[in-house]
Simulated assay, not measured.
Amino acid sequence: MVLTRKWSLFLVLVGLFAVAVWPRFAVAIWQDPRAWTGAVGVSGPTAFLWVHAVLIVTAMVLGLLTGYLGVRGLLAGRSRSSGVTRPAARDGAVR
């Protein structure tokens, strides 16, 4: 599959957005009194914290993978435009 430069840039921006937004959201959830059975950060975590932790980790992983794919698309586009040829796929897949 070949990504255009615009789609590759879009994927990179989505990845950067995830890296910028989700950690701040994680801090907000950590400081939320609903995330703890008592005092914030020193008592036991609630289901609210665990559910949001899973969502945040999933969103970060997907964001990082999306950004990675965008960077790969940009680099592949650069190598195509510079005339660099890639070796043929070993499994017979067409690239």
Rank of each mutant, 00 (worst) to 15 (best):
L75Y: 01
A20V: 10
W22Y: 13
M1N: 09
A88F: 06
V2Y: 03
V84H: 10
D32E: 02
A59K: 02
R80F: 09
R24A: 12
V19N: 08
A20I: 08
A18N: 07
R80V: 04
G38Q: 02
H52T: 10
R34L: 14
T4K: 01
V12H: 05
V19L: 12
V61G: 09
L49M: 15
V40M: 04
R80S: 02
A93S: 15
V84A: 14
G83N: 12
I56R: 06
A76I: 02
L16C: 14
R78S: 07
W30M: 06
G63R: 03
Q31P: 01
L75A: 10
A47Y: 09
Q31G: 10
D91P: 01
P87H: 03
W22A: 04
A20F: 14
I56M: 09
G67C: 05
S81L: 14
L49Q: 06
V19T: 15
V12T: 02
V40N: 03
H52L: 05
V40R: 07
G77S: 09
R34V: 03
Y68V: 11
L75Q: 08
M1L: 11
R78H: 08
A20N: 09
P87E: 03
A26Q: 04
V27Q: 09
L49G: 06
R86I: 05
T37W: 00
A35E: 03
V40C: 10
G83K: 08
R78Y: 13
T85W: 00
L3V: 03
L74Y: 05
F25N: 10
S79F: 09
M60E: 07
H52D: 12
A76C: 01
L65A: 15
S79Y: 02
F10D: 00
L13F: 03
K6S: 08
V14I: 13
L62R: 01
A47E: 14
F17P: 01
L64P: 00
V51E: 13
G15K: 01
L3T: 05
